[in-house]
Design a protein around this nucleic acid. Structure first.
Length: 258
DNA sequence: ATGGCTGCTTTGAGCAGA
């Protein structure tokens, strides 16, 4: 099974790129973040034409989650948002089970700037995600938590760590919150297979950051040990980032053996 | 570099993103 994760930065603006990339990568499951579309306007038909059925949980303007399933792939036990979220809560999580693997697709709050209410909300949200794991899951089950975490774990995940140290996306408090998730019982799938630097998933639109490869690794595929044992690779697919008017994120691809 | 791009919004300047 091939599971991908991609922050598309508006699904409707990215439909052509999605179609092209689905043809290239042929994933079975795609965890999509930042659809930026309310459910009544979700482009179900267009994605159906690409050969995928979609579970979606969106809102107008911001956030919004979806999981696309290649025709023939079945999903069970769909869950929306964290325990305790009401109907007005920002839509940042959608989960389902595919072929015995529980998949949590997450969009962690950006945090705006250190010291703001948004930054505090980000830390709380990460802690609530950890509570979600502790409440509903066990480290010995087949579990994948993937998506846009908006946190670079280590200096190797940042193009210029000295410049980013203490800033949002690379602040000690965020990194500690991410580390607590891993300590519950999750492995960083990309790092389990790749030890090199310069491997990023997001590049700012400005100043030719992608061309210079000045980026951050803030999208992750975290998995429990039994799933990590089945995972043959996690890799970053840079192809969609090279197109005209791309998402600022590249997709992450998780290869799971049987 | 208190900016730089991009997408969205009852359309257009302001916001959020990362």
């Amino acid at each position: 099974m091939r599971v991908a994760s991609w922050n598309v930065n508006s699904l409707r603006a990215r439909l052509e790129h999605l179609s092209t990339w689905l043809g290239q990568a042929a994933p079975d499951v795609v965890c999509i973040q930042e659809t930026k579309v309310e459910d009544a306007k979700f482009p179900e038909g267009a994605i159906g034409d690409m050969g995928y059925r979609t579970l979606f949980f969106g809102q107008k303007t911001y956030n919004g989650m979806a999981i696309a399933l290649r025709f023939g792939v079945t999903a069970e036990d769909v869950k929306y948002n964290l325990d305790g979220d009401d109907a007005e809560a920002p839509r940042r999580l959608i989960a389902c089970t595919v072929d015995g693997v529980r998949i949590l697709n997450v969009y962690v709050p950006n945090g705006q700037a250190v010291g703001t209410p948004a930054f505090a909300y980000k830390l709380v949200w990460l802690d609530r995600l950890r509570l979600e794991l502790a409440t509903h899951h066990r480290p010995d089950e087949m579990l994948l938590v993937c998506g846009d975490f908006n946190v670079a774990p280590d200096p190797i995940d940042v193009h210029d760590p000295a410049r980013w140290e203490g800033q949002v996306l690379f602040h000690p408090d965020e990194r500690a919150a991410l580390a607590r998730l891993r300590e519950w019982g999750l492995v960083d799938g990309f790092r389990a297979h790749h030890h090199e630097g310069g491997a990023f998933t997001w590049w700012d639109y400005r100043l030719g950051m992608f061309r210079r490869n000045w980026g951050l690794r803030i999208d992750h595929a975290l998995m429990t040990a039994p799933l990590a044992a089945r995972c043959t690779d996690v890799w970053i697919d840079r192809r969609p980032r090279e197109l005209e008017r791309p998402s600022d994120h590249a997709p992450l691809i998780v290869e799971i053996g049987s």
